[in-house]
Amino acid sequence: MQKRVLFITTVDSPVIRGDCDFLRQQGFVVQYLFYKGGNIRNIIIAQLYEFFWLWRYIWRSCLIFIWFVDLHALWPVLLGKVLFRKKIIIMVGGYDAAQEFSLRYGAHLKHHKTLVIRLCCRLADKVFGVSRFTRDQINRYIGKKAEELLLAIYLPEITDLSVRKVYNWDVAMVCGGYSLQTLFRKGGDFFVKISKYIPDRKFLLIGLEGEARRWVEERRPENLTVTGKVSHVEVCNLLSRSKVACQFSRYEAFGLAIGEAMAMGCIPVGLNYGGTPEVIGDAGFLIDKLEVQDALQAVEKALNAPDSLREKARRRIRTLFSPEVREAKLREVLRELGIRRG
């Protein structure tokens, strides 16, 4: 009989689907639960559903794999570890490790969530941060338990990745979101500001909706194009037609967007904070503060950089953040936990 893995997440993304597919490829039966919270009523419904879902499937499972740690991790950890002695892996993202008062961002702004996160992580067999930065952030609350397990960057097939090609945009940035809070945290407001200083360059801001897009549309210069939410394939297509990509996030757990841009051949420019510098490394340009002149100098350097730096950025992503690298680490983790292939 095939072994069962319970896989629980609150977000759907290529990285999370990649982990789920990896477990299936190892021969496990993956029982998938997408936990959708929200207001108090929805949280109560989600908690009840999760509780009965666990009782149905936990008996024959060998592992509980939880993406992010919040209220949705509480029942799986309590039932799985305390009652049934199951192995538990928790992947910590950004929000669940953060306490950013100035940005009004992070689970640890609320004391009861810190208690839940600390309990879940201390009972889990393995806790991983998506970057060294995230690992260090979560370890402030749970002790030195979390390890680093870098994200993989999953890319769709893009036909033209040649270095010498026609570019539609000079500078691009992915800043998906609806709220002004997200726009500000991702540095979209700063991107709009610097675009005004280089009117002869074409700027592209990808993925805005709602009040965030309205705010930008009211302030954007003529040389800045804004798109709404687009598919992952279209995001990568747009990035592949851009020379430079920016990541000016005031808080970024990993830097997935800038990593995808690098894989698409963009030369990266980013803020030297959070997970962003771990992704960019020596294959791009970093600024220490969100100062306009510093950013303009870095963008100009990137625009005038040789194509060899573009290829270096691609190579860095292929070498350090490929699905194969992450899958090899996950195999090692399963061996450490004594979990054999299904």
Rank of each mutant, 00 (worst) to 15 (best):
M1E: 12
V11F: 05
V11I: 10
V15Y: 15
R24N: 04
R24C: 08
Q31H: 03
Q31W: 01
L33V: 13
Y35G: 01
F51E: 06
R60I: 01
I64H: 09
V77C: 02
L79E: 08
G80A: 05
L83I: 11
L83K: 07
F84V: 13
K87M: 08
Y95N: 02
D96T: 08
L103E: 10
A107G: 01
H108Y: 00
K113Y: 15
R118T: 15
L123H: 03
F133C: 11
R135S: 07
Q137F: 02
K144A: 09
A146C: 11
N168I: 03
A172G: 12
G176Y: 08
G177I: 11
Y178V: 11
S179W: 07
K186P: 11
F190M: 12
V192H: 10
K193E: 15
I194D: 05
L205S: 01
I206K: 09
E209G: 04
E211F: 05
P221Q: 02
P221I: 03
T225D: 11
S231Q: 01
C236N: 10
S242D: 01
K243C: 07
A245T: 02
C246H: 01
F248T: 00
L256K: 05
G259F: 07
M262F: 07
A263R: 12
G265W: 02
C266T: 03
G270L: 10
Y273H: 13
E278F: 04
V279R: 08
F285S: 03
L286E: 07
D288H: 07
L290V: 03
V292R: 13
Q293N: 15
Q293V: 10
Q293A: 12
Q297K: 14
L309Q: 03
K312L: 14
A313M: 01
R315I: 07
S322P: 02
V325E: 04
R326P: 06
E327Q: 15
E327T: 11
A328V: 09
E332A: 14
L334T: 03
R340V: 12
